[in-house]
């Protein structure tokens, strides 16, 4: 319980830091969105328009601390302002519409690739020197060395364009409207297969190699040798004694990967025009859509923190040693 409180306190503290930095960064930058618009129209806007733009974008000339208070209040109420690109759609709705797609696509891909990679790693290490152990590391080293976007383009060209097996863009066909109908779900899966494959193929190698090496190391540990001697079954030895300990570093990696799910799928979403957070981020940058960017950065920061918090909670469950503040202190 103390561990939970400690971790939660740290989570809140870093969340506050992220929000504050997100507040300060744009204000340290020269200019503001309204001025950008003014320059875009090369001074043909009169000062009244400038003022109204400033009002709309929430730009004020109040002291910094007052701005900060207003900003934090807005954050708590989920008011991130209006998006310029999708004017006058609020940033929060843009995020609401794109977050599920990214979580669904990149989240699933991350979970699948890590579980698959860890299982294959256990398998390769257990049959060390066998067929799987000789082939898998070589093959997956190759696949993880393939640049992400290059594989995406290749798959898109072969399976989307040439063979026409899969759609080449978007998350579902424009002719359908979102529902829980099997046809719609099938359509969504159809659209997700290529981007998901890209992500799984390029990420798999890292999981596999990491787990295999840890597993080989753990198999040489005294407690595994002792457990084998005391006669626990092979299955139990493999999972409860060896893999259970060997997976702890992978779990840390999983936490970090989970945090990057939201912000890390920029390339794949761009190539497949997949309407997720990454795609919106590129759009926001292209359109100098500061409110949207700020909102997206905040969402990305929050998801990294949240993922880390969840993994730390899991870690506390899976490794009893981390719960104590350190050896000896109790």
């Amino acid at each position: 319980m103390r561990y939970f409180a400690q971790r939660f306190g740290f989570f809140i503290l870093s969340l506050w830091a992220a929000i504050t930095i997100n507040f300060l960064l744009p204000r340290f930058m020269p200019g503001n969105p309204a001025e950008v618009m003014i320059t875009r129209y090369q001074g043909r806007l009169n000062p009244l328009v400038l003022h109204s733009l400033e009002l709309q974008f929430g730009i004020s000339h109040q002291p910094l601390w007052q701005q900060y208070v207003t900003y934090v209040q807005n954050m708590i109420h989920g008011q991130f302002g209006l998006s310029i690109t999708y004017y006058p759609v609020p940033v929060i709705s843009v995020i609401e519409n794109s977050l599920p797609w990214t979580l669904g696509l990149a989240g699933t891909a991350t979970v699948v690739s890590s579980i698959l990679g860890v299982l294959l790693g256990i398998f390769a290490a257990w049959k060390r020197g066998g067929m799987a152990d000789t082939l898998l590391p070589v093959v997956t080293t190759f696949t993880s060395a393939i640049p992400y976007q290059w594989l995406a383009l290749l798959l898109l060209y072969i399976f989307g364009f040439s063979l026409g097996w899969f759609p080449t863009a978007h998350s579902y066909s424009a002719t359908l409207s979102p529902s829980l109908h099997p046809a719609f779900i099938g359509n969504v899966l159809d659209h997700a297969i290529l981007p998901a494959t890209t992500m799984i193929v390029t990420a798999l190698g890292g999981w596999l190699l990491g787990m295999r090496n840890n597993m080989i190391h753990t198999l040489g540990e005294d407690y595994v040798v002792f457990a084998e001697a005391k006669g626990v079954t092979q299955k139990r030895l493999k999972y409860m004694y060896a893999a259970r300990n060997a997976m702890l570093p992978s779990l840390t990696g999983f936490g970090m990967a989970l945090g990057f799910v939201v912000g890390g799928s920029v390339l794949v979403e761009s190539v497949f025009s997949y309407p997720g957070i990454g795609y919106q981020l590129v759009t926001a940058v292209q359109n100098e859509d500061y409110p949207l960017m700020q909102g997206l950065f905040l969402i990305i920061a929050v998801s990294v923190l949240l993922a880390n918090f969840i993994v730390e909670m899991l870690y506390g469950k899976l490794d009893p040693r981390v719960k104590k503040g350190g050896a000896g202190r109790s």
């Binding site: 457990a227 006669g231 409860m240 300990n245 490794d319 009893p320 040693r321």
Partner: peptide
């Protein structure tokens, strides 16, 4: 120092031995 599995309770490891046989 290292003969016991760090992620299992002592009891679980004793019971594991008994139940395996």
């Amino acid at each position: 120092m290292n003969a016991l599995n760090p992620v299992m309770t002592v009891e679980a490891q004793v019971i594991d031995t008994l139940k395996s046989h």
